[in-house]
Design a protein around this nucleic acid. Structure first.
Lengths: 104, 104
DNA sequence: TTTAATTGATACGGTTGCGAAACAAATCGG
DNA sequence: CCGATTTGTTTCGCAACCGTATCAATTAAA
């Protein structure tokens, strides 16, 4: 199943994200907000620039957006987007479809 | 579940493969041999250099090996290795473990 | 045998991601 | 107010990957 889904992702190729980027995206959309750079860095155990750069590229693709936290303006809160939701929904459907076809 | 497994892969970090490389590796180990460069390129719908380069890097990591086909010496057949088998087995266990913890 | 086709590898220029370090802005603590 | 801390970003040099085009070796075809 992992093979089939990965293969479909390679075929799709619309947003080709790295495993790290995909993991960041899933964290943002599946775990309860708010999400910050340092929080994601800690969860994935990577450095902060990794998060910043991933947010840059995913921001250009429209998959996430950023906003300053007005209560503590050092913080940046990461927000979901419609396009990101649609993209992950598509991947979710893909996984479900592949799982359904498993030989059980 | 996809999230959890990806997160574990990022944490592990022993061989950090791209999605393409992982898909190539899974194809080699899960689909019936023989595997050739052009065959994998066709299956993944990528160009041949992509396969060659992926085999280079995965070969260095010891995950696959290559051998000339003696019947048609233009061909290269890709072979599994012990280390590659162990690596994929570890990932398989990871997936099973994560799936077991699903809320059903 | 000589030409054409097939197969995998390589060269090239460009893009992207990386870790470490330095940085600017904001907040905290005395 | 002023130095220390926290937070996210940027810079630097470097390595890896990409697609296109080309190459060398091998086989098939004429």
């Amino acid at each position: 199943m992992w093979h089939d889904v990965s293969l479909a992702m390679v075929h799709d190729n619309s947003h080709d994200l790295t495993v790290r980027q995909m993991t960041i995206l899933l964290s943002i959309y599946l775990e309860p907000p708010p999400h910050t750079v340092r929080g994601l860095a800690a969860k994935l155990r990577v450095t902060k620039p990794v998060i910043t750069r991933a947010l840059d590229t995913m921001g250009i693709k429209g998959l996430v957006s950023r906003r300053r936290d007005e209560r503590d303006r050092r913080n940046v809160v990461i927000q979901k987007t419609l396009e990101g939701s649609l993209y992950l929904e598509k991947i979710g459907d893909l996984i479900i479809e592949m799982a359904r076809e498993l030989p059980r």
